[in-house]
């Protein structure tokens, strides 16, 4: 009798040869699912050519001590003031910008110009950290020993915060940094937020 029953449940053993023709309805869904999977795949390479947001970056390994020294040099070169005890640094448009993460601070505060491209380097000198730019919600992983150089073009002015979003110990929630974006036309480093802060804190 069982041989005549067309359908079985998933806990009954089927005949030895279960490779049988698929019903039209099921075949339709298989092809829809396959087609959609192809779209999902194609979007990623496509966005590398057509889209403006990719996590590619310029990637190198770096000794934490060497990175720390590079950040110190960068701060010395372009510091324009301080903000809440943190150096404010205004690098020229198109330059390499170095941001250091450590338990539990982002160093330095950056002042960038809207509309200009920078190479923003991220690295850590101790454990993993997470770069999360608020309120834009741009997120990157920061790994010790690796220099992640991202070409970024700030497109709006204002104050942005960097939240650490990778657990890095008990002071994780204290780790907040800042990026100030000023109007490109007014010139960097000479006015705007950096100048005010320099006066206020010194």
């Amino acid at each position: 009798m069982t041989a005549e029953v067309k359908y079985r449940s998933g806990i009954e053993a089927p005949e030895r040869i279960w490779w049988k023709k698929v019903h039209k309805t099921e075949r339709v869904w298989v092809w829809i699912a396959f087609g959609w999977s192809m779209v999902l795949f194609a979007m990623m390479p496509l966005w590398h050519f057509r889209g403006g947001q990719n996590p590619s970056g310029i990637r190198h390994t770096v000794e934490p001590a060497a990175y720390q020294a590079r950040v110190a040099e960068f701060i010395q070169q372009y510091q324009v003031g301080t903000d809440n005890g943190f150096p404010v640094v205004a690098p020229p448009p198109g330059s390499d910008v170095y941001l250091q993460s450590s338990m539990w601070a982002w160093l330095p505060v950056l002042q960038l110009q809207a509309g200009s491209e920078y190479v923003l380097h991220l690295s850590s000198i101790d454990v993993n950290h997470g770069f999360s730019l608020y309120p834009l919600n741009i997120n990157f992983q920061v790994v010790p020993g690796y220099d992640y150089g991202l070409r970024v073009t700030p497109s709006e002015t204002g104050e942005f915060h960097i939240i650490c979003n990778e657990f890095c110990g008990v002071g994780h929630h204290l780790m907040v940094g800042k990026i100030i974006v000023v109007d490109g036309a007014s010139g960097a480093g000479t006015e705007g937020a950096g100048g005010e802060d320099a006066g206020g804190d010194q």
Binding site: W29, V30, A33, F34, W36, S37, M38, L40, F41, M44, P45, H48, N54, P55, S56, G57, R59, L122, S123, N139, F140, Q141, V142, V143, Y146, D147, Y148
Partner: peptide, 29 residues
């Protein structure tokens, strides 16, 4: 590891989907 510094875009695209997203298709089936 899609926004990690250790791997490049081709590694990320390939290993996310193995070119085909066939595991996603399996769940859809």
């Amino acid at each position: 590891l899609l926004v990690d510094p250790g791997m490049g875009p081709s590694w990320k695209v390939w290993n996310t989907s193995y070119f085909m997203y066939m595991a996603v298709m399996a769940s859809m089936l």
